[in-house]
Design a protein around this nucleic acid. Structure first.
Length: 290
DNA sequence: ACCCAGGGTGACG
DNA sequence: CGTCACCATGGG
């Protein structure tokens, strides 16, 4: 939620934002291409370079093309009442414990193809290395764009990724995921419209997106949550496994049924709540015992 | 040398 | 349905 938005001189400013920690958002593992600068963060989104910085409850966005407020409002999920979500979490001591570690997080609405490829790369991998692989992929297959004398690279199109050989994908560090990425890009380039997955039931969207090679339950939910608007999608990785075990299962191992039960309890925003739990787990560390 | 990281696939019961 | 070895890679 925000109070006001104005555009002037190629800059957009959202003011009066309740609950935003942009550094936390950019570094929490939902997006891999926001780079820290002296004053804020820099990236390339939708083919155009962008610089952002936060000052108190203001978010400043600079880009060369015409400002598009509604795009960024949606991208940063600014039109959602996160203070209400946090209030709900604070009602439950198990979830309330996560809030201090994660307040200000927002679930971005990113570009579907970029998110799909990024999270195929994320499988059995760590965040630092995922970012490096994606950077090299963009340099190899993306388009160079100039921004105030600095060269940045767009995330490559499905066609551009599909045109790479498996060896080229291995050369940027994809490893054994190279054939998955190539085949997935080929399917997307052949006309599989990821936006057609919007508005389905969650289970149906899951079923369809898992037809891409390299996309299992966890990657599917990441793409649905981080790029296709499914706020109930609930990715469970090793960190979530630890946190759910400690917070909800009295130390027992997580199984599929227990996750379904927890999600039903958390409700339609379980995916957003997942971000709070995930960030708590990563902040507190492996030592979630008790 | 070993373990781990925002896991998925295929083979086998 | 569930389990399990295997898959590249780099950092701790």
């Amino acid at each position: 939620m925000f109070a006001e938005c104005k555009a002037a001189g190629g800059e957009i400013v959202f003011t009066g934002i309740d609950r935003l920690d942009i550094a936390r958002c950019c570094g929490c593992g939902q997006a891999f291409r926001w780079k820290q600068t002296e004053s804020g963060f820099a990236s390339v989104v939708a083919g155009a370079p962008v610089d952002i910085f936060q000052c108190g409850d203001e978010l400043h966005i600079s880009q060369p093309s015409r400002p598009d407020m509604s795009f960024w409002e949606n991208y940063f999920d600014l039109d959602r009442d996160y203070s209400a979500i946090e209030a709900m979490l604070l009602d439950d001591p198990r979830l309330g414990r996560c809030v201090p570690y994660a307040t200000g997080i927002r679930v971005f609405n990113q570009e579907p193809f970029e998110t799909l490829i990024s999270f195929i790369i994320s499988a059995n991998n760590n965040i630092a290395r995922i970012s490096g692989i994606i950077d090299r992929l963009c340099i190899t297959a993306g388009e160079a764009v100039d921004w105030r004398g600095e060269i940045r690279y767009t995330f490559p199109s499905a066609q551009a990724v599909a045109a790479l050989s498996e060896d080229q994908l291995r050369a940027v560090g994809c490893g054994y995921r190279a054939p998955f990425i190539k085949k997935t890009a080929e399917i997307a380039a052949a006309g599989f419209d990821l936006d057609s997955l919007r508005g389905l039931t969650l289970d149906e969207a899951r079923r369809r997106i898992r037809s891409f090679p390299g996309v299992g339950p966890k990657v599917a939910d990441c793409v649905l949550l981080f790029s296709l608007g499914y706020t109930a999608a609930f990715p469970v990785d090793v960190w979530m496994r630890r946190a759910l075990s400690a917070l909800f299962l009295d130390g027992d191992d997580v199984c599929r049924g227990s996750v379904d039960g927890i999600c039903a309890q958390l409700g339609e925003y379980s995916g957003i709540i997942q971000q709070y739990i995930f960030h708590y787990a990563r902040s507190v560390g492996v030592d979630l015992k008790r």
